[in-house]
């Protein structure tokens, strides 16, 4: 509308020009306010909290206690490493599962496309907690999946590679990684779907016409053109998976504690607020660092 007004009144229309200049900022305002109240302020509070000393009963004093970061890392580095390894494996598995599925929905599903997409997001209709609890049933010892896995010696294999400790599937690294993969799979599928849906099938034909075998066509045309989706999907899976505290608690054991569970426990049970805040900050910084390296390495800027 502002555009039209300028055109119709010609160049001598300072009021509408001024209006056009502040409109974008006015549109940004609600979002900025939201971010200030719900993101910037909590971050500042959290940062300040991490540098305070004291306890819940006597109150806290700001002492610029930076050594808490060193202590936190010293004490909890195994949980950090574990979190990133689990999240990394779950992201990889989700990518392997999601890519063919997203490709199918985008290029081959035809008129069933919307139905399949609804099925992909259907799990969101129930809560994250309920879905993870369901995995306790699915992987429990008296259910057929564990029996089958035992009969097919899958449990032996998992035990040999150290993903489980005994004959059951539940309460193991295996179960935690499965849970993470399952819970964040839709976040992988949807961005992949979006970028594969934009892929012009005529480019696939052109590659075939230019002597590329189906595998070469995938490697040289389909995969590079879907990279924006791959990057978005892996970030949307990896970041929440690395900070997750539900899967490790419900599906794991004491040896599979992830950093999210530690932060959860420090905040809500131990009530050591400075340590919990410091751990949260370390997690944040590590994730931002990894993501920046990853996005730069993927080299997708020119595709976006």
């Amino acid at each position: 509308m502002a555009e039209t007004a300028v055109l119709s009144t010609g160049s001598a229309a300072p009021p509408s020009r001024r209006r056009r200049n502040w409109v974008p900022y006015a549109l940004l305002l609600p979002g900025i306010l939201w971010l200030i109240v719900f993101f910037v302020l909590p971050m500042v509070t959290l940062a300040s909290q991490s540098l305070q000393e004291g306890n819940v009963d006597d109150g806290y004093v700001f002492t610029a206690n930076f050594s808490i970061y060193v202590d936190a890392l010293k004490q909890y580095w195994p949980q950090f490493v574990r979190s990133f390894v689990y999240a990394g494996i779950a992201t990889g598995l989700a990518l392997l599962l999601a890519y063919p599925l997203a490709y199918f929905i985008a290029q081959k599903a035809g008129r069933h496309k919307n139905l399949v997409l609804v099925l992909v997001i259907a799990p969101f209709f129930t809560s994250f907690l309920i879905r993870t609890l369901a995995w306790r049933t699915i992987l429990s010892d008296d259910w057929f999946i564990t029996t089958w896995a035992q009969n097919l010696h899958i449990t032996d294999f998992l035990q040999a590679v150290g993903l489980t400790d005994n004959d059951s599937l539940l309460n193991s690294q295996f179960a935690v990684i499965m849970g993470l993969t399952y819970n964040f799979l839709p976040f992988m599928i949807l961005p992949l779907y979006t970028s594969l849906e934009r892929l012009d099938p005529r480019l696939i034909e052109a590659a075939g016409d230019l002597y590329a075998s189906p595998w070469q066509t995938f490697r040289k045309v389909t995969w590079p053109l879907s990279l924006p989706g791959v990057v978005a999907g892996t970030l949307l899976t990896f970041i929440p998976a690395a900070g997750d505290f539900i899967n490790a608690r419900l599906l794991g054991n004491t040896q599979t504690t992830m950093i999210g569970s530690v932060i959860d426990a420090q905040f809500l049970r131990v009530l050591d607020y400075p340590l919990a805040a410091a751990l949260s900050f370390i997690l944040l910084i590590l994730i931002v660092a990894m993501v920046s390296v990853y996005v730069r390495r993927a080299g997708t800027e020119e595709l976006l």
């Binding site: 012009d200 005529r202 480019l203 034909e205 052109a206 590659a207 016409d209 045309v221 590079p224 053109l225 020119e302 595709l303």
Partner: peptide, 11 residues
């Protein structure tokens, strides 16, 4: 083939 849409690889 020279395709009607050209089908050049954009990347």
């Amino acid at each position: 083939t020279v395709f009607q849409s050209y089908a050049l690889f954009p990347h």
